[in-house]
Amino acid sequence: MKIIVPVKTNPDLQMIRIKNREPILEAVPYKVGDLDKNSVEAALQLQAAVGDTQVVALTIAEGNRKIKDTMKEVLAMGADEAYILSDDALTAADQAGKALALAKAIEKIGGADLIVFAEGSTDNYSGQMGPRVAELLALPEIGYAKKLTVADGKLTAERGMGDLIEVLESSLPAVVTVTSEINEPRIPTLMNIMKAGKKPTTEWTLGDVGLDAAAVAPQKAVLSNLAEEQQRKNVMIEGSAEEQCAALIDALIKDGVLEA
C-alpha cells in the first residue's frame, strides 16, 4: 500500500524570542514539527506491520529556504521519498489554499491508500488540514487517533473522546490524524541520515500541480500577532521549605484565595 504523510516544518519554537511583544523570527531555523514526527512514525510503524508499503512525505516549503535539508530528517527516519511544494504564493496562503495544494499534489502523486496527518501543526495547531484534505478528496477521515491498525483493507483507530475511548473503522483510502500519544518518534541513526541524501526528493511549483497564485490567495487577514501581556506579582519567596510554605500560605490568605 501507499501512505502519504503531509508534514509541516516550522520555525524552532524554542528559539523564537519576543521583543516589544513581537516574535523575532530572524535567524530562527526551521525544523520538522514535533507532532509531524508522530505522524511519520505512525506511517513507518504501519509500513512495518503491513509490509510492502511505500511511505511518501509531502510538504509545503512555507518560507523555509532550507526545506530540502529539513526534510532529510523525515527521510532519515525512514520515509522512502519526499515531495516539496515550493512557491512564494503558498507561503502567504492560509489553510484553504494549502489544503488545496496538498490535495492536488496527492492526486498528482497518484493518490494513496492512507494519508496520515498530525492532529495539528506544532506552531499554529489549527487542525484544519486533515479534514479539509479529506473533504477535497472525498475521503473518510478519523481525527485524533492514538492507535492505528490496518488489516483486510480496513483502517481501525482508537481515540479519546471525553470520558470514553472510541474505536472507529473506515474503508481505505482514508485520511487519519494522529495525536502525540500514538508513539515515540524514532531518532534517525547515523547510517540512515547518510542514506537519506540519496532518497528521491521532488520539488514542485504551484503550476506543477495545476494551480496558480489566485487559487491559493489568502482569505483571512492577520490583524495582529503579538505576545500577550502577563500581569503577575512575580514575588519570589525564599527561606527553608518550611519558611517558604508559611510565607506562601500567608500571602494566599491575604489575596483571599485561601481561608485563614
Binding site: 519554537l13 519576543i18 506544532t122 506552531d123 495547531y125 483571512k220 487577514a221 490583524l223 500577532n225 503579538l226
Partner: peptide
C-alpha cells in the same frame, strides 16, 4: 500562534 508564544487576531474574508 507560534505554539502559544503569540496571539494572532484574524478577520475572515470569505
Amino acid at each position: 500562534s507560534y505554539g502559544g508564544a503569540t496571539v494572532a487576531k484574524e478577520k475572515v474574508n470569505t
